Amino acid sequence: MTEKKINPFLKQVLELGPTLAFFLIYLRIKDDTFTIAGTDYSGFIIAALVFVPILLVAMGILWIMTGKLSRMQVFTAFMVIFFGGLTAYFNDDRFFKMKTSIVYAVMAGLLGIGLLRGQSYLQFVMEEIMPMEQEGWMILTRRVTMMFIVLAIANEIIWRTQSTELWVTLETFAFPAVLFVFLMAQIIGLQKYLIEVPESPED
């Protein structure tokens, strides 16, 4: 199915908005305790549970407007629902925090499997938006795989040793920013492998 074009700003709001909403909700209720069906839940767990429907609504709107969701978006939604459910069922915020480590580890594992087979699964996902020679894709995939491993380890260290508030802040802003800057640096550094796509002649 062909992806329909929407306003880039609106797309960013739908993709990043749920995470920012989680951050703001957490800040508002982080010190509160909520009693539901006789069980006390921390503000963090309530914010995590509210994040699930917000994410699903945003993804639903994105799917309706573009006609397409990426495999990464679907996988992330599944992980959020699964670990959000475990967090609520066991009333334990550790499940939601370790979700990030598992997502990064799974991505590293999938890319690593491709590398062992002499393939770049990153190329399969991104080739349409960034045409590049095979050698460039293999270099980028190896580096991105290592970056995912580093982020997974960093998340484990942070949530196990630091405060919940610091983890939420880093999860919302630092991890995405580090990954974005890393990818931009790699794209700039691999310019020589990029393939120029000839412009189609005007009618």
Rank of each mutant, 00 (worst) to 15 (best):
S120C: 08
A108V: 02
E156K: 02
I29Q: 02
G109C: 12
E3H: 05
M130F: 07
A108T: 09
T169W: 05
T66G: 00
I45H: 03
V106M: 13
I129D: 07
K68P: 09
K30Q: 15
S70A: 09
F182V: 03
L170H: 06
L170D: 03
P8F: 05
M132Q: 03
F82S: 03
K5T: 07
G189Q: 10
L20C: 09
G112S: 11
I45E: 08
S200Y: 09
W63P: 00
K30P: 07
P176A: 12
F124S: 12
T172E: 04
A21T: 12
E133A: 04
G114S: 14
V178W: 05
V13W: 06
L190A: 05
M146C: 01
E127V: 14
R143A: 03
P8S: 10
E199Y: 05
N155C: 08
Y121N: 06
Y89C: 07
S101F: 12
V103A: 00
M72S: 08
V125S: 01
K192S: 13
L183C: 02
M147G: 02
Q191V: 08
D92G: 11
V150D: 08
R142K: 15
D32S: 13
K99Q: 14
T76F: 09
I139Y: 09
D203R: 05
L10N: 09
M138V: 01
M138Y: 04
T100Q: 13
T33F: 13
I29V: 11
V197M: 15
T141W: 11
M184G: 14
F173I: 14
F82N: 03
F75K: 07
R71L: 14
A185S: 13
G118Q: 02
A48L: 15
L179S: 03
E202T: 12
T141L: 10
M184K: 12
A47S: 11
M59D: 09
L16R: 03
Q162A: 15
I188R: 15
P8M: 11
V13A: 05
V57N: 13
V52A: 02
E171S: 00
F173C: 03
W137Y: 15
R28G: 13
A185I: 07
K4R: 11
M1S: 15
S163H: 04
D92T: 05
L190N: 12
I188Q: 15
D93Q: 15
G85Q: 04
D93G: 12
Q119I: 01
D92A: 08
Y104D: 06
M72A: 06
G43N: 04
L27H: 03
R94V: 09
V52K: 00
M132H: 05
K192D: 13
K30E: 11
F75T: 08
N155Y: 03
E133P: 03
G189N: 14
R142W: 07
G136F: 00
Y26W: 06
L69I: 14
N155G: 14
T2Y: 09
P176K: 11
V178P: 00
E199M: 10
I195R: 12
T39E: 11
M138K: 03
L111A: 08
L56A: 10
I6K: 00
Q191F: 04
R94C: 09
G114C: 05
M126F: 06
M72C: 00
E128F: 12
P201C: 06
W159D: 02
E135N: 14
F78G: 07
I153V: 15
V168G: 01
V181H: 00
A88W: 15
I102N: 10
E156D: 01
I81V: 15
F96Y: 15
F173G: 02
